[in-house]
């Protein structure tokens, strides 16, 4: 475990908790893409199926449980408790266009043709594009609440920190995983324009608004 990976996990946890608190406290999921949250729940489910069969550490197991619990709780709040505030008019990105290619690619390009490994690979590919419905929603509404932009910044930073973690692991122990690395690069690239807007606007106290 190196500092980049730890900060990455922390950033990911902060993002997940920020979102859950935002919805719970404001009792509203306006500006949040329920479809992206469904994709994240699928990512965690397919990636952590070895939760009980493959013990790595208390940290690893507890974080997996937190991620899975929070992601399902978020989906429940959006589609259950606060569905009256769900922006179904704008949250229209076709997630089958993300699920099907990720599944096909997982069968074609993986490290090991075993069920668990193919599901892990599927979760890596899906995670790299899972934020697209959310970014699509922000572009359609033309703006994002400040708390939502903090959520996106933390979420985008997590995989950027993981890229630094893989750089560190490559030079310190010769470890690399091309599937995770290339997917992580794509995932982070998708946030680039958001990062620019966040740093140039939100950090100056302005609201995040995309050029109409």
């Amino acid at each position: 475990m190196n500092v980049f990976r730890f900060l990455g996990d922390l950033s990911h946890l902060v993002a997940i908790v920020i979102l859950l608190l935002k919805i719970w406290k404001t009792r509203s999921c306006s500006g949040i893409s329920g479809r992206s949250q469904i994709l994240f729940a699928i990512v965690f489910t397919t990636r952590y199926l070895d939760l009980f069969s493959n013990f790595i550490s208390v940290y690893n197991t507890s974080m997996k449980i937190v991620y899975i619990t929070c992601s399902y709780a978020t989906v429940y709040l959006i589609y259950g408790k606060f569905k009256a505030t769900y922006d179904f008019n704008h949250d229209t990105f076709r997630i089958e266009f993300l699920l099907v290619p990720s599944a096909i690619l997982a069968f074609l390009v993986n490290h090991d043709f075993s069920p668990l490994e193919i599901l892990w690979t599927f979760s890596i590919y899906l995670e790299s594009v899972a934020i697209l419905p959310q970014l699509f929603l922000v572009s359609k509404t033309g703006e994002a609440e400040t708390i939502t932009s903090h959520y996106l910044f933390a979420l985008g930073s997590y995989r950027l920190l993981y890229l630094l973690n893989w750089l560190w692991r490559y030079f310190s122990q010769g470890f690399y995983d091309l599937i995770a690395l290339l997917s992580g690069i794509l995932q982070t690239v998708l946030y680039c324009d958001f990062f620019y807007l966040y740093i140039s606007k939100v950090l100056k106290g302005k609201k995040l608004s995309l050029p109409a």
């Binding site: 990976r5 490290h111 892990w120 995983d177």
Partner: peptide, 10 residues
Amino acid sequence: SSESPNHDEL
């Protein structure tokens, strides 16, 4: 690779 890789990252 023969052994299924052990993913120790989240």
